[in-house]
Amino acid sequence: MSTAAPTAAHPLARTVAAAPAVTLDGLNARARLLTRFDRSYLVPAAVLTDLVARLTDPERPGGPFRALAIDGRRAFGYHSVYYDTPRLRSFHEHRQGRRLRFKIRERVYRDSGERQFEIKLKGPRGDTVKHRRPLTGTDTPLDPPYRAYLAAVLRERYGIEAPHDLTPSLSTDYLRATLVADGERVTCDAALACTDLRTGATVRCAPGLVLVETKSAGHLTDADRLLHAHGIRPAVFTKYCGALTALRPALPGNRWRRAAGTAFPVVDAAAAMVGSRP
């Protein structure tokens, strides 16, 4: 895995530098939100600066949002590997809006080296429900204990069998800053790069554009309202489905194509060569 750019020098880190800090334990105490509603926005950097300033204003009613800080850092490198079947079952079930859909990934927190095996499900209200289990040493999500965990989760929650033919499908790399208030969280992801692990093609998010996700128990948050006031509406976009739509134009990804075109205005030559193959 490549090493992320120095976080302290990145504009995202400077944007949240003046915010009051919160520890990881403090963040989880205020808004762990393993079951939540997510809304995604593609936000210009100038709007992000205003959003952060307003959310972290000491005079904000209810108190300011706080920025996750660990060892003096406020922006952190993330690496994820998504797993899917050769026919992209997870992608297509999300495209079709299937109620019993899921995503499977390994998440790596670059700054600490922590690794998690994560299963993301859809709850009965359309909310996101995340199940996770630590990965240690040379463990991978394809090892028997994690396959057994996946099978148990899907059987218990959905009453379905787990796919047996999973392989690495897509990787993502980005820098993240996280803001938190009671019961709500805002993540800001910059320098997003996504690689198709079956072809090697890569797409990168447009410079100056940040993926902002609001996470709450369901209600519109202050962050949502502030973004709406700037004329920015939720984007039909996920890292996995949006990136695959850009990387493989032959896929029937119309629901994500508009946002993917905004996020990834340039597709590299390798992607263009293989894009005609689903």
Rank of each mutant, 00 (worst) to 15 (best):
I160S: 12
T35G: 06
E59Q: 12
L100Q: 15
G261M: 05
H92N: 09
E93C: 13
R277L: 15
A193N: 03
R198E: 15
L68G: 01
L192C: 07
R115A: 10
R95P: 01
E184K: 02
V203S: 08
L55N: 06
S40I: 08
F117G: 04
G183F: 01
E161D: 15
A75V: 02
V274P: 03
T140F: 05
R157T: 11
G113S: 01
A271S: 12
A190P: 08
Y78G: 00
G123K: 07
L166Q: 13
N28L: 13
H131W: 12
G275Y: 03
E59R: 12
P144R: 13
D182M: 01
A270D: 14
L27N: 00
K120E: 03
R39C: 04
M1K: 09
V153Q: 06
H94S: 14
A69E: 15
R99A: 15
C241I: 04
G123V: 08
C205K: 02
A8C: 00
L211F: 05
G159F: 14
A250I: 02
L150G: 08
V16Q: 01
L175P: 01
Y158S: 13
C194R: 05
A235L: 08
E184L: 02
G126F: 09
R107Y: 07
T238A: 13
L121E: 12
F237V: 06
T7K: 00
L179S: 05
L226W: 05
P145F: 10
H94I: 11
F102R: 15
D165G: 09
A181N: 09
D57T: 06
L227R: 05
T140E: 11
A177D: 00
G183P: 03
P252K: 12
T49Q: 15
P58V: 06
Y158V: 12
R101A: 06
I232M: 06
D57Y: 06
H10A: 10
P144T: 10
R225D: 03
L135S: 10
T167L: 15
G62V: 05
Y240D: 02
Y83G: 04
D57L: 07
M273C: 13
R257M: 04
Y109I: 00
R107F: 07
I104N: 04
A9K: 02
P44H: 07
R147S: 12
P163Q: 11
I70Y: 07
R107N: 03
A8Y: 00
T199K: 08
R147W: 09
P168S: 09
S90K: 01
L42N: 09
R125T: 14
L88P: 09
L142N: 12
R87A: 15
A151K: 03
P144L: 11
L68V: 09
Y41K: 02
R155N: 12
A235G: 11
G26L: 01
L51Q: 04
H164K: 11
